[in-house]
Each structure stands twice: as C-alpha cells, then as structure tokens.
Design a binder for these strands. Structure first.
Lengths: 234, 234
DNA sequence: GTTTTAACACCTAGGTGTTAAGCT
DNA sequence: AGCTTAACACCTAGGTGTTAAAAC
C-alpha cells in the first residue's frame, strides 16, 4: 500500500518558477530511472494566482470531524502522458516541519508553540476517476474537489487526517499502471511526484488570521452570504 | 462498440416471479455458452414495490431537451460475481413494440396512435464506476441515478435518446472484462442481460395520467413542494 | 487561555411538477 | 387539438463562515 516515501523532505522550490513542474522536479535533477510513461509528464497548478494570494497571507485550511473541503481546490492541468497508458492520480499531505504552531493575535503572526504532536495517519487520496488513460486525464483540468480534511484520528470516511495547528505540504502523484509485470516490484519506477510550495497551509479548526477569512469569503462562491463589499474588487 | 443486439426481443417474464433474475434469464433456458465469470451472476431490482405501483398505473417518464432523470431510479443489488474479476455495468432502452401512443383523457387510457416514429439512436449508458471488480459491485446497491433521458435526437451530453409517446423496456447488462484475450472477439460470451418487465414505461414530454403525477409527487423527495396530503399515507 | 464543537443562517447546485406560451 | 418548450417556485443536498457553548 505505502509505496511512496511519506517521510521524504519537502522540496524547496522558489515561488516564481513553480508555475509548471516537470516530472521528478523534486528530485533536484538527480538520477531518475523512471518508466518512459512518466518521465515526460508535466503538471501545471490551476488557480495559481489565488493560491499565491493565500500563500502570501499564510494559508489556513479548516479541519472538522466530519471532513472539510479545501479552498482553493487543488486542481491541475496535465500534459506529456502516454495517451493510451493507464494512470492513477492521487494526493497526500506531508508535514512541512516538526513543529506545532499558535497564532498571536496581537502581532497577527504565527509562532512556534513546541514540537509536533504525534503524526496523524498518513493516507492517500485517490482521484475518483482513477484509473484512467492518459488521454482522459489530459483532456481537461483534473480537480480534487472531493478531497476532505479532518482532524478525527479515527475517521472512517477515507478523509485526509491532519493535526490542527500543524503545517502541511500537499503532494500530487502520477502513477503509471504497468499491465505487463508485477506492479508492486516496479512501483518505484512507475510514478512521479509534484509539490507546489504555494499550496502549503496550516490546518486549523477555526480561522486565526482575519485576512485569510476575508479572502476566503471574497473568493469562495459558497461563502457569498458573508460578503459585504463588491466581489469584483478582488 | 455495439456488441449487444439492440433489436433483440423483449423477454416476456411474469411479474410475480421477476424479483430476482438469474443470468441469461431472458434466453429462456436456451443454450448459454457464457464465460464462468458471468454465468452465476444474479440481479435483484431495488424499490421493487414502488416500481410495481407505477407499473400498475402505466409508468410514464419525462424526457426533456436537457435530459431528465428517471424516477423511480433504476437500482439493483448484485451477487454471484467473481469478486476479483473486473466488470463493466451498463444500461440501454429498447422499444417494447413498433407503436406510437396517445393518451385518451376521457377514458384515462393509452391508445395506439399509429406506427412508431423512426427509432432514436440506440445508446449505452455505462455506470460511472465502470470498470470495477466484482467485490466492489456486490458491496452495496448499484444506482443509475446519473442516467438521464432526452428527446433531443442531436443530444451531445451522452444522455439516452428516446421518442416521446413510445414505450420502452430498460435493460441492464453485466460485462466481464476479459484481460487475457481480445475482448472484441469473445464479447458475446462475456456478458449477460437482465430485463425487469415492471420497469417498462412510456416516454412523455408532460405527464398524461394524473394518477402517475400524484404517485411521483408522493414518492419523489424532489417533488415534496407539491404534496398536499400526508406523505406517510403512501 | 486556547482550541474545538455543534447549531445556524445563507449560499451554490441541481432535481421536481406547474404553468403559460409556442409549435405543428 | 395534441404535443413540446422554457421560465418558475419549491424542494433536496450539501458547502460556507459565524457564533456561543463546550472541552481541555
């Protein structure tokens, strides 16, 4: 099941060149003996400008017992797949560091509040259309809008379990489904991973930074009921 | 693509014993050289009582240009699949006869109004979870609630195209995805078909029989706004 | 004190039959 | 006259931040 290294370090890519990531970008140009079906894969993060706006304020994502969607939604455009080959697309979340945070309202900033709590169960979220052919994945934007975040360590709904007040980096994985051989043995060659630094966030049970709240209200259609100003101003 | 005989006759099974259909039920006990993955498959129609209530009045299903869901929804429970084998589940609709109908309001009954119009394009509706393993299909009820009916001959949304004022029999197909050989050549052995006579209906652009309208309002949650009497009376 | 929970009003998104107008 | 269409009010279903109370 766990054929990815959950403990692998978070890549340190600059914001400005992260619009498009070639396969194995996080490996930093190291040796990359990947299957040909994944070597050419390129992934572009959608809603990049919105993600940047949140990232500049310090993105917060609500976690609830029942599960809460992410906003912005993680959406990507993919190219360079083998149109006829089958792929599985999935996401996971890895801790950015070993710290617990708290928000200082008087200074409107996040402070380190100690060592991280025990790590939440590291789950994978398979895109519901998986598996599908490359042609299908490349046809239009791939959206992970069914993905939900929870702080319930005993969650039984397949949601992604995160610790509140901890910082996370979403990761996106493209896995080639090799029909010819035992996929378990060659899995390490048949996938590649993409990390977009601007999608990092701190999990919270209630918003801390009021500017994050305002940007969510301004940009999320489901929060329209809380808008007071002109929505086009954003 | 069209590996089913769209023009095959509608099976004439009695209402009373149609609760559960074994594979190849429509073949009437004839020779049935099917693959072992489909021979043992059994399908049970859900909401059977509701379907019978509608059938006794003469079920009508709305067709619209944009596409309209069926109510009751076609839902089945499946058993007897090979849990590890992959199956595709799909539906189609075949004309019950070669006639066009009209409703006589004064006698509250359907009359034959001539020969059928030119047949609408015969489409297949693949269940969106297809393909999936037998274990997945048997885990819980399979619902075709995404299926929509349209009278637009030029429909480009993948909906099922039907002629209004014509009578149809929904059919349900279980197709075993054979990984070993050319599935095209052996397709005739790898599927079986189920027809439930109580799911027959006449396609309409507006309800004709007022008792059908009342039963829809009473039993469809989305029509609750039109209820006047106690819903528990049904 | 800080963090979490649950009920809530207010939205989006889309499935109902109704109705009046339009079509043939 | 028979049939179809489109706008509509009224639902279901579920995604928002708010708020006050609860939990720790």
């Amino acid at each position: 099941m766990c054929f990815f290294l959950l403990s692998s370090p978070v890549p340190q890519l600059s914001h400005r060149c992260a619009l498009t990531l070639p396969c194995c970008a996080e490996a930093g140009g190291a040796t990359c003996a990947k299957a040909p079906q994944v070597t050419g894969v390129t992934v572009q993060l959608e809603m990049h400008t919105l993600w940047q706006q949140f990232d500049q304020l310090g993105t917060e994502m609500i976690v609830t017992k029942a599960g809460r969607r992410m906003f912005p939604t993680f959406q990507v455009s993919i190219s360079g797949m083998d149109p006829a080959a089958e792929y599985v697309l999935l996401m996971d979340f890895i801790p950015v560091d070993d710290k617990r945070y708290r928000y200082a309202f008087h200074s409107s900033s996040w402070l380190v509040a100690g060592r991280a709590d025990v790590a939440a169960p590291g789950r994978m979220h398979f895109h519901p259309d998986s598996p599908a052919r490359g042609s299908q994945w490349m046809k239009q934007m791939v959206s992970f809008d069914a993905l939900k975040l929870t702080n319930n360590l005993l969650d039984d709904n397949g949601h992604m379990i995160l610790n509140s007040m901890h910082r996370y980096q979403p990761r996106f994985h493209v896995v080639y489904v090799d029909p010819r051989r035992d996929s378990q043995l060659h899995a390490h060659r048949n996938f590649c991973t993409f990390s977009f630094p601007e999608t990092r966030f701190i999990a919270v049970t209630a918003y801390q930074n009021h500017r994050i709240t305002q940007l969510k209200i301004a940009s999320n259609p489901f929060a329209k009921g809380f808008r007071t100003t002109d929505p086009d101003a954003w």
